[in-house]
């Protein structure tokens, strides 16, 4: 009975208290999460300094796919995404009447890395990566065991005869999806395999933990976003060959797309909420304005000036849908 009383009291208080409409709820990719958090910090600080009405901003990073589930149910205002919205997600949004604005905000590269002490591996072809981590590699315990499969799918092969300690993002992560799309999908489709990695690798939702795991074994192979790999000590970023020679992941090769495992980052904004909620508008203005440097600050590759101008234009005109 006291429970009921308390709830009723709170209800009454909310309706008298008001002000809770000025909230911005961000969810989605754990890769984009640090950018959104940095923007939210700037936004909150700036908002306080200007003496505006207080805005409650919350940011979570459950993963791009799970984020879209929430977003397309109208439960969040912004969805961070490390891969472009999928047709079935668009469908889900449409069936719930959620209109969205797609805004590219930066670029990320997925980096294959190994421990610094592993000098045997400098460059991997996409075929090698498929053979080491793809759906057909379950059970391989050494790098060399993947040799045969690697040459079969057009990789270089000639992998070292050393234990293979694989570590990467869990399946709920946007990085997982992008890795599958960038490194696995083409070959897997050709061979009629499922679009997924092998299940027997150490998975973590936290990119930092993956970096730690890579450091922890002399013959490890892990993959994370560029931001995390660049910050990591004692790891080697492996070059990747997609048929045009080995390319190292750098800001330039990721921004211009020559590095094979690179991808754009997005935020998706709920259009109808943006029309009503002034706080959301100011938050996105901030995201693309003063706080845009956050992308580089937290370790990703910033948009080129032209690309940024295009994104701002999409926002200003509230261009609906995916490009």
């Amino acid at each position: 009975m006291p429970a009921v009383a308390a709830v009723t009291a709170c209800l009454a208080l909310t309706s008298c208290g008001g002000g809770s409409t000025s909230s911005v709820v961000v969810s989605g990719s754990s890769t984009v999460e640090p950018i959104s958090i940095a923007v939210a910090e700037f936004f909150t600080a700036g908002n306080e300094a200007e003496g505006n009405e207080k805005v409650s901003v919350s940011v979570d990073g459950p993963g791009t796919g799970d984020g879209f589930e929430l977003f397309c149910d109208g439960l969040t205002d912004i969805n961070d995404a490390s891969s472009k919205i999928k047709p079935e997600q668009i469908e889900a949004c449409e069936s719930n009447g959620v209109e969205f604005i797609e805004l590219p905000i930066g670029n990320d590269g997925i980096v294959m890395m190994t421990s610094e002490s592993n000098t045997a591996v400098k460059c991997l072809s996409t075929g090698d990566i498929y053979a080491l981590a793809g759906p057909e590699s379950q059970g391989f315990e050494t790098w060399a065991e993947a040799d045969e499969l690697a040459t079969e799918v057009g990789g270089q092969g000639d992998l070292p005869d050393a234990p293979l300690d694989l570590i990467g993002p869990g399946e709920e992560s946007g990085t997982y999806v992008s890795f599958v799309e960038l490194a696995i999908e083409d070959i897997a489709e050709e061979r009629g395999q499922e679009l997924q990695t092998r299940p027997d690798y150490q998975a973590s939702a936290d990119d930092n933990i993956i970096v730690q795991g890579v450091q922890g074994s002399a013959t490890s192979l892990g993959w994370v976003g560029f931001a995390f790999a660049r910050e990591a000590e004692d790891v080697t970023m492996i070059e990747v060959d997609d048929g045009d020679g080995c390319v190292a992941p750098t800001e330039t090769t990721i921004a211009d797309g020559t590095y094979p495992l690179s991808r754009p980052l997005f935020i998706y904004v709920n259009k109808s909420v943006a029309a009503e909620n002034d706080s959301l508008v100011r938050f996105v203005d901030h995201y693309l304005g003063e706080a845009v440097d956050s992308v580089a600050d937290v370790g990703y590759v910033a948009l080129s000036d032209t690309a940024l101008a295009e994104t701002r234009e999409r926002w200003q005109s509230r261009t609906q849908g995916a490009a």
Partner: peptide, 21 residues
């Protein structure tokens, strides 16, 4: 519970914010 970031849009004792994240 929110795990990533939650801004201080709310006062410590603000009863109205009890229904927020």
């Amino acid at each position: 519970a929110t795990t990533g970031y939650l801004s201080g849009g709310t006062e410590f004792l603000d009863l109205g914010a009890l229904t927020d994240r």
